[in-house]
Design a protein around this nucleic acid. Structure first.
Lengths: 342, 342
DNA sequence: CTGAAAGCGCTTACAG
DNA sequence: CTGAAAGCGCTTACAG
């Protein structure tokens, strides 16, 4: 039914092997053959069947990006820049979006079996999944946005922001503005244990603690921090709980802008105002945060640089260099959501 | 390297054909064989190679969803419900995200060649692309969110909101609140021509016009409407242009919530307030719209129902029924962004 | 119910 | 530079 390489061969008068060679732009084909075959491909509107191609090919030619959380705006910005960068390098790349509850490493294993990518970029991976199955992924990879140095895989690099320092800066900004009772909205930080190195929320919580310690203040996560889903509703609900249980709170640090935006609304709905009554600092620096009313003060992760370095490292890694673990600087962006306490 | 069906056959003592049969749960396999083989599959951790499978299979078993615009929050909500519905029906479905500038029909053609889906759902398609190439898509499809009745393909259904009526209601709401100079932020509506049936923005613009006409008012799109990208920045810029050129404006209708949110911020930045100085109505009813400050008044498309009906129609369509074109009711959701003019 | 065999559309050594 | 052939990992009539 569909036109195959065989049709092209027949029509052009060459063998399928030769057609395949021009399609894969491999070395030795005469110009005459190339031209004739390309013309025939055009004429017949031939497109290669990737199933067959990848079944046979022992090594693919493209790269893969696995994104966990299609709705994540920070990731969206990073992905865009990654695509630009790949195409600037003349490489092809395919995107794969996953739900929060899917296993990205399993997906990668599958991808390697079927697509045999030259390398994979992970956006938003879960360390546990890597620990469990990453040995089955043979190609160079880089985990973006999460640290992977302690994982110790020789084919896994990482590029991320320093979560501890970022959170410490956010919290420090609030403390330095005079706030003494700051609520924290995070992910699952129930695990403030030695093993917590594995968890972004826990790292950021640690940053909160450090900021207090550095200023000779005390911080009680059990009382001041609440866990929440990284969503508008999650931030909304968490802010409500915080306000209910800690009436003395004058500021909130949300570990993601999306939650901060939810919190903004929750505060408003209680008849309070930001920043007059409650100050808020977010995290990520997604586009959205600059459009809020009030504009959100937030820790901006450098999406462009995160993307660039990830791609560059992956590309080098493919050439045979070792895994590297890079930290990208963040930036505290001051909006209108923080008030100085006199 | 990876474990194949051959390994399973060898280890279990059956032929590859038999293994294949239990994998595809086809009729005739003895319970003994099934058990033994399933156990071996488990033991060896075998996963079928889809390349080989799809290369051979003359008909796939799953469905496809092609989403144009990974960042579109309306689509995100619809997709979620679609997935639930497919899995409730015991069907598997694969998601494919495309950029705004990719050709979704081309993607579908490719998909049909390589994945041979039983049916495809399109979110956010471009009518021109369908006109150009849809004849090459052999399976039943439904275009969601855009009308396809006038396209006349026997294997293309559609499920959408009535854009003209929706926009008319939004605009009517503003007019009935006493606004007389309403600016409109839309897509490319330069084509207010007889051929405009092809363009969502143009349909919504038509709705604006109707709302005016019905009330004996006049509406001049050239003066009152500006085109914009469907993004925060697009809405922001458009609002600025509108405010610059039409100082008399007291309200704005944005053809997407995302643009309305951008407009909200633009108005604020000019020292004006919503709704005291300028009223705003959005379109879509994305989650975000309920978290804005002020909460957005918007025309809510019924994402759940849109999803349900799309899936149901596709499933029936696969069983052989004819293409249908269904309109899903919308709902004007009143937020806090519209003020009644005394 | 099960096995042996053909073949899906390609790529890639192997000869020439 | 080019052709003929093997084979990637599966599915699916075809026999039995």
């Amino acid at each position: 039914m569909a036109v195959t390489i065989k049709d092209v061969a027949q029509r052009s008068g060459y063998a399928v092997g030769t057609v395949s060679r021009v399609l894969n732009s491999s070395a030795s084909v005469s110009d005459t053959a190339r031209e004739k075959i390309l013309a025939t491909v055009e004429e017949l509107g031939f497109t290669p069947n990737n199933n067959a191609r990848q079944l046979k090919q022992r090594e693919g030619r493209g790269y893969g990006i696995i994104v966990k959380g299609a709705g994540n705006r920070l990731f969206a910005g990073i992905v865009e820049e990654m695509q630009r960068r790949f195409s600037a390098a003349g490489k092809t790349v395919t995107l794969h979006y996953l739900d929060e509850d899917n296993d990205e490493v399993e997906q990668a294993v599958q991808l390697c079996r079927e697509r045999k990518p030259l390398g994979i970029l992970f956006l938003g991976g879960n360390r546990e999944n890597f620990v469990r199955k990453f040995t089955s992924v043979p190609c160079p990879c880089v985990l973006v946005t999460t640290r992977a140095d302690s994982l110790g895989f020789s084919n896994l690099s990482s590029v991320c922001t320093d979560d501890v320092a970022g959170a410490a800066e956010a919290m420090g900004h609030l403390l330095d503005a005079g706030h003494r009772e700051v609520g924290v909205i995070g992910g699952d930080s129930s695990v403030l244990t030695p093993a917590m190195g594995s968890n972004t929320s826990a790292l950021r919580l640690l940053g909160c603690q450090q900021a207090h310690l550095q200023r000779g203040l005390s911080f009680d996560p059990n009382r001041q921090a609440v866990a929440a889903r990284f969503s508008l509703q999650g931030g909304y609900d968490a802010a409500c709980r915080l306000l209910d249980h800690n009436p003395g709170i004058t500021a909130i640090f949300a570990m993601a802008d999306i939650m901060a935006i939810g919190a903004l609304r929750a505060i408003q709905d209680r008849g309070l105002r930001v920043p007059e009554d409650i100050s808020i600092v977010g995290y990520d620096g997604i586009e959205q945060s600059a459009y809020c009313i009030p504009r959100l003060t937030t820790v901006r992760q450098n999406a462009g640089r995160l993307a660039q370095r990830s791609v560059d490292i992956l590309l080098q890694h493919t050439e045979g260099t070792e895994a590297v673990h890079e930290i990208i600087p963040f930036q505290l962006v001051c909006g209108e959501s923080v008030r100085k306490v006199p």
